[in-house]
Amino acid sequence: MPAITREEVAHLARLSRLDLSEDELVHYAEQLDVILGSVARVSEAVQQLGQGQDIPPTSHALPLVNVTRPDVERPCLDPAEVLAQAPAAQDQRFRVPRILGED
């Protein structure tokens, strides 16, 4: 199925917020093509080994369900300690670069 293009890699990079260089776009296109070509075997595996049976996907090997916690407060972090780790802070808030307009 693959044959991933430079443009597709550029799209993936945008979706994943990576400011890839031109060289990287070309390089990753080649590598992802090889990797995807190899991992695409999973569909074939399902057909060959599944032998027409219904094979539900397993997103988690754990057989657990209904793990919850009671609605009871736990201690919070000290905001000063948390904000001391932030690249920028102001007025006890995280300072972030301008967010492009929604309106």
């Binding site: 916690r69 009871v72 407060e73 736990r74 201690p75 919070c76 972090l77 905001p79 948390v82 904000l83 007025d91 006890q92 808030r93 995280f94």
Partner: peptide, 16 residues
């Protein structure tokens, strides 16, 4: 998480 949800607290005081 177990952080409280009360309205009007000082910023980032209800975080973990």
């Amino acid at each position: 998480c177990g952080c409280p949800t009360g309205f009007g607290a000082d910023p980032n005081t209800q975080t973990c």
